[in-house]
């Protein structure tokens, strides 16, 4: 059986909120290492990969591999009933029909309990190859969100060019063009404001802004976002969570003109 207790419901609320517009039905794969999720969007352009390590829960117990097929719209409805600060416990039997969610208020004696019916989801897992990326950029997640939103006002797509000069986000649209360039930057007082660019060779790729703006819904999960790029491979957008847990998005590039 599965029993996983999260100190704050907020974490799951934010994760589900960040992915629910991208994927609708998905398996939460539970085993003794934690709870994982991998799903593609309907157009097969983007892939979300979530890992909530067992260390992110206290306690965490999962004796066997259990796949919880959950509709994220249903999960969102139930998670809305949880306060951000509530303690959240997920429970399921070994061959479950439902997943049980318990929300406990730390301040009051209120305990709420919900069951969500599970779905049988036949989901194919994709093998994600280990990649030595040509460029890795760590930057404030709010900055990345702002750049994507600003450029989306002009164009459907953005080119991300990484060179010794820095990283340049550029777009061209009907009304004109725009770009934002960031250079490496260290803020001793506020490390979450750092921009770090690790480059082994120059990269230039084009991506759909609609997807990137969608990924940025995860911004509240982490002060920093990591972008990993290599020519001709999907972009990796990673939001690191505590205890080596993570929320990753992969986005296939667009073909250049």
């Amino acid at each position: 059986m599965l029993e996983a207790r999260l100190e704050q419901a907020n974490l799951l609320k934010k994760v589900v909120d960040a992915i629910k517009d991208l994927v609708q039905d998905c398996n939460f794969d539970c085993n003794d290492s934690g709870i994982a999720l991998q799903a593609m969007d309907n157009s097969h352009v983007a892939l979300v990969s979530m890992m909530l390590k067992s260390e992110s829960f206290s306690p965490f117990r999962c004796d066997r591999n259990i796949a919880l097929g959950i509709n994220l719209t249903s999960l969102t409805k139930v998670l809305r009933a949880a306060q951000n600060e509530d303690i959240l416990t997920l429970k399921a039997e070994d061959a479950p029909d439902v997943v049980n969610l318990v929300f406990e208020s730390a301040e009051s004696d209120r305990i709420s309990e919900y069951d969500i019916k599970l779905m049988d989801i036949d989901q194919e897992h994709l093998g994600i190859p280990e990649t030595e990326y040509a460029a890795t950029i760590s930057m404030p997640s709010a900055e990345f969100q702002r750049i994507c939103r600003d450029l989306m006002a002009l164009s459907e797509s953005v080119s991300i060019e990484c060179s010794k000069e820095g990283v340049k986000f550029a777009c061209q649209g009907d009304i004109g063009s725009g770009s934002v360039t960031l250079r490496s930057h260290t803020n001793v007082d506020k490390p979450e404001m750092n921009v770090e660019i690790d480059l082994t060779e120059p990269v230039s790729l084009t991506f759909s802004l609609k997807y990137l703006v969608g990924f940025c819904k995860a911004s509240s999960l982490s002060g920093q976002v990591k972008l990993c790029l290599s020519n001709e491979v999907p972009l990796l957008v990673e939001y690191a969570l505590a205890n080596n847990s993570y929320l990753r998005f992969y986005l296939a590039p667009k073909i250049g003109d």
Partner: peptide, 14 residues
Amino acid sequence: VKNQKSILGFFQKK
């Protein structure tokens, strides 16, 4: 999406 590659072109089904 026009000119958009698929993620399946990069990651293989297990």
